[in-house]
Computed example of a mutant assay.
Amino acid sequence: MNKKSRYTEKLSHKNATIVMVDFLTGFDPGLRTIEKSTFVNNATAFAKISQIFKMPTIVLGEEGGFRGKFYPLVSEYLGHGISVERFTPSAWDEPKFREELEKIGRKKIILGGIALDICAQLLTLDLLNNGYEPYVVVDCSGSDQKLVEHAAMLRMTQAGATMVSWGTLASELMGDWRTPEGEAVGKLYQEHSGWGGFYQAFKD
């Protein structure tokens, strides 16, 4: 018999919050486990999901110095998001971040971070330690080594987090093609997924 748990409860636009961590150009050199074009494509799709479902969203990071500037997708699709500057390895250690999470009042946190093994992992562990339920969008993240990336996913999973993809996320949040968001999700797949031919561009 299958046992119901907090991780078998479906995600919805009413029970989850999105957190975007460090989508800044200065971290590009560390992206060696995923092609840059694929990474930007996936991160853009993730940002559009936030917009399509009008979900509460927190955008973490600060521009300047080695961090560079935010990817254009942040201003283009995340204008509704709450911006929080972060100067700590884990965003949990920024009081404003905790305050904003408390205001939103949701336990399920869907997050993507440019460095899976650093900013995404450390925040995920802190969220778990404080009663939240993190879902890590792994195809919107990367690392400098496959081994390091694998270790990060293992540690987060063993700690209790769930690994997801943006494609799974879009369908789960939608639930039914006849919803008002159904058409937008269909367009999202056509523009950004392999189902719509995105990866074919690299073969031709």
Rank of each mutant, 00 (worst) to 15 (best):
G167M: 11
F66D: 05
M156V: 05
G68M: 02
R178E: 14
Q200S: 15
K69G: 03
R86D: 05
L11N: 07
S37N: 13
G112T: 03
T157Q: 15
V21G: 01
K187E: 12
S141A: 15
D126M: 05
F53Q: 02
D93H: 06
F97D: 10
G167F: 05
W177K: 09
I109H: 00
I52E: 09
L116Q: 08
E76M: 01
A159P: 00
T33C: 00
G186P: 08
G196C: 08
K48S: 09
A159K: 11
T17I: 14
M163K: 05
S193I: 04
G182Q: 08
V40H: 12
T8W: 05
K187N: 04
G30P: 06
M163H: 07
F23D: 03
V136A: 03
T44I: 01
A201D: 12
I58S: 02
I49W: 00
T88C: 07
R106M: 13
F97E: 07
G182N: 00
E102Y: 07
D176S: 04
L147D: 06
A151C: 00
F97T: 08
G197H: 06
K36Y: 14
A16L: 11
R106N: 07
G68K: 07
Y132V: 12
S165M: 10
S50R: 07
T157C: 11
A16V: 09
D144T: 13
N130A: 09
R106V: 12
P29N: 03
C140D: 09
G68H: 10
F39Y: 14
Y199Q: 10
V138F: 13
V137L: 04
I109Q: 00
R67F: 15
